[in-house]
């Protein structure tokens, strides 16, 4: 796995940080089995404006030439969003599906995942051999999380502009996501966010789970996140 200087994921063998409270590490193995010949499903969640769509576009750009990938978006989806993905991610239209969530984005990824499963299966049927399926949730609050019946792995995206207290607030996305991305680090000075506080709190909340600090303006390919996705693809076959 590629280790960026901003990558704070740790080797569990040498990790010795203090646990101020118990972590819900138990279900990270996931309940959704990998089916041979079917794609790896990665959920991307996070609050409104944290940069989920931009991260999806960056991953498409970084990985689109290496693996066959497709996107299901639960965000309020406009032609502009589609254009954004098509233009930025070089993703043909047939590789993007939009799912309406009836004003409840968390329900569609957690409580009632049937419409998302439907969209994923349609993509798998229309794109034989698709290797990676990204499910972008609609922007929600910190309590949202993906069902383990929907995705194999999930990334939770927060941004420094949301305040450096966000990791301390926790919530299932921050504490349990397989990868926490703290985005827009380039804005930290301007919004008065202390990255070291966020790092400390994220470690406390997440135990052995990795956290990546990211600035898509400085790293438009989201290299450390793309590397994490690559490692998922290679270790989860």
């Amino acid at each position: 796995m590629l280790h960026d200087q901003n990558t704070h994921d740790r080797d569990p063998e040498t990790d010795d940080h203090e646990h101020p409270h118990p972590h819900p590490h138990t279900d990270t193995a996931g309940v959704l089995p990998r089916t041979p010949g079917r794609g790896l499903r990665i959920g991307i969640g996070g609050p409104v404006g944290s940069g989920k769509t931009a991260l999806v576009a960056a991953l498409c750009r970084a990985l689109g030439s290496e693996v066959s990938l497709a996107v299901v978006t639960n965000d309020i989806y406009t032609t502009e969003d589609a254009d954004f993905l098509l233009r930025n991610g070089v993703l043909p239209e047939q590789r993007v599906r939009a799912v309406e969530t009836g004003c409840c984005p968390h329900t569609a990824i957690r409580d009632d995942i049937s419409a998302n499963l439907e969209a994923l299966e349609e993509l798998e049927e229309s794109l034989p051999g698709v290797e990676l399926l990204l499910v972008e949730s609609g922007g929600d609050n910190l309590t949202a999380t993906f069902s383990r019946g929907l995705v194999h792995r999930q990334i939770y995206v927060v941004d420094v502009a949301g305040g450096d207290k966000v990791p301390r607030k926790g919530g299932p996305g921050v504490t349990r996501a397989d990868l926490l991305v703290i985005n827009k680090t380039d804005l930290a000075d301007r919004v008065g966010a202390d990255l070291s506080v966020m790092d400390r709190d994220a470690r406390a909340q997440r135990g052995q789970l990795p956290t990546i600090f990211l600035s898509l303006t400085e790293d438009p390919g989201a290299a450390p996140v793309a590397a994490w996705v690559r490692s998922c693809l290679s270790t989860m076959d």
Binding site: E100, T101, G102, A108, D112, S114
Partner: peptide
């Protein structure tokens, strides 16, 4: 709450 898609 039956997870059959009706909420959307």
């Amino acid at each position: 709450r039956l997870p059959a898609g009706g909420h959307a």
